[in-house]
């Protein structure tokens, strides 16, 4: 049982990971074929994982409806919309009129309204973040304000050099700072990936 519960998952992660790495460093045709095959397997398993998410949504909201039907209007609406979207999508197809209605007039406008909500919340976050308490916060404040002003025509009217400075900040200061963060993050990422492949980070796939 130990073999099936602990050793096989570690072996699977090792073999799958090492094939991808070997395929990258040594251009061996048979390894490349297997690496591609495994990548396509993963995308198929990921679809099953998506289904798992749907099953969880169903379980959570059905439980809520069963426990307190009078207080679960939101769960009922969620379940109805969920099932209606799936049945239309699978029977009539994604190019059918009712499905397009759901996509164009419910998913897209509501999604972008939710996305844009952050424009309002970010204002309060900016108030807290942009208080020049020290040198770092002052730099954040100045670059943030210049970039915001440089992106709109009104900003150029207030500070004529704002667009030019925005370009310089984005192409020089931003690149320098971000590049350091990116390289440091990537080195950490490589370390974690190696730990997963060689079986030191087993918790990521449920083995203690």
């Amino acid at each position: 049982m130990h073999l099936a519960k602990r050793t096989i998952p570690v072996a699977i992660a090792f073999v799958c990971g090492i094939i991808q790495v070997v395929d990258y460093f040594f251009k061996i045709e048979s390894v490349n074929t297997w690496a591609q095959e495994i990548r396509s397997w993963v995308s198929i398993v990921a679809i099953f994982a998506l289904g798992l998410g749907a099953v969880n949504v169903l379980r959570v909201h059905l439980k809520k409806v069963r426990q307190a039907p009078s207080e679960s209007l939101n769960s009922i609406l969620l379940l109805i919309t969920f099932l209606v979207t799936i049945s239309i999508g699978l029977t009539a197809g994604q190019s059918s009129k009712p499905y397009k209605f759901i996509f164009d007039y419910i998913i897209v406008p509501t999604g972008s309204a939710i996305f844009s909500l952050l424009a309002f919340y970010i204002g309060t976050a900016a108030y807290r973040a942009f208080r020049a308490k020290n040198a770092e916060a002052a730099i954040l404040l100045v670059t943030g304000c210049i970039v915001m002003l440089g992106k709109v025509p009104l900003g150029e009217k207030i500070i004529p050099f704002a667009p030019k400075w925005t370009t310089w900040i984005m192409e020089v200061l931003n690149v320098g700072g971000q590049r350091g963060v990116m390289i440091a993050g990537a080195i950490g990422f490589v370390a974690v990936s190696l730990r997963i492949i060689i079986g030191l980070e087993r918790r990521t796939y449920g083995v203690d």
Binding site: L77, L78, T81, T85, G89, I102, F103, I107
Partner: peptide, 12 residues
């Protein structure tokens, strides 16, 4: 409604 439609769309 949005979560229901989005999850359904993902499944489709």
């Amino acid at each position: 409604i949005f979560i229901g439609a989005t999850t359904g769309h993902a499944i489709v």
